[in-house]
Simulated assay, not measured.
Amino acid sequence: MSDPSVETFAVGHCLVARVSGEMDFVTEPVLRPQFKELIARAGRFIVLDLSGVSFCDSAGLSLLIGAWKQAEPSGVVLVLACVPEHLRRVLQMTGMDQILRVFNTVANARAVFGC
Rank of each mutant, 00 (worst) to 15 (best):
V83S: 10
Q98M: 10
K36G: 13
V19G: 04
L38K: 06
L31D: 01
R88M: 11
F45N: 09
A111M: 02
L50A: 10
K36S: 15
A59I: 12
V79S: 00
P33H: 08
V6L: 10
Q92G: 08
L50S: 07
L78G: 05
L50D: 02
V26Q: 06
E22L: 07
Q92L: 11
L78T: 06
R18A: 14
V47N: 01
E37T: 14
D24P: 04
R88I: 06
I39S: 02
G66H: 05
E28D: 05
M93V: 15
A111G: 03
S20C: 07
E72G: 05
G43L: 03
L87T: 12
D49C: 03
L100W: 02
R41T: 11
V83W: 08
V77L: 00
D57G: 15
S20I: 02
G60P: 03
D97C: 10
V26A: 09
S51F: 00
P33Y: 10
N108W: 03
D97L: 09
H86P: 09
K69G: 00
T94L: 13
F9H: 13
Q70H: 13
G52Y: 05
T8P: 03
S62E: 14
S74H: 12
V53P: 05
L63I: 02
S20R: 12
R110A: 09
G66N: 09
V90L: 15
A59L: 11
F45K: 06
K69I: 00
R44F: 03
M93K: 12
E72W: 09
L100T: 08
G12W: 03
A40G: 14
M23V: 12
V26S: 02
M23L: 15
I65L: 15
F25W: 07
M96P: 05
E22G: 08
T105W: 09
G114R: 12
C115S: 04
V53T: 10
E7A: 11
R110K: 08
M93S: 15
M1N: 12
G114C: 09
S54T: 15
G95F: 09
Q70K: 14
R18N: 04
E72P: 01
C14Q: 05
D3M: 07
S58I: 12
D57R: 15
Q92K: 15
A17M: 07
M93G: 08
F45P: 00
P33T: 08
R18W: 01
F25H: 14
A111P: 01
S2K: 08
A42M: 05
P33L: 11
A107L: 07
A40E: 15
V47D: 00
N108H: 12
A81E: 02
V76R: 02
F9P: 00
T94W: 14
G21S: 04
L100A: 05
F113M: 06
F9A: 06
V90D: 06
A59C: 14
V76S: 01
L15S: 01
S2H: 13
K36P: 01
I99P: 04
Q92W: 10
L91F: 11
C115R: 04
V16D: 11
L80A: 12
P84K: 11
V79K: 03
A109P: 07
V79C: 03
A81T: 03
Q34W: 02
F103W: 10
T105K: 08
C115I: 04
N108S: 12
G60T: 02
S58C: 13
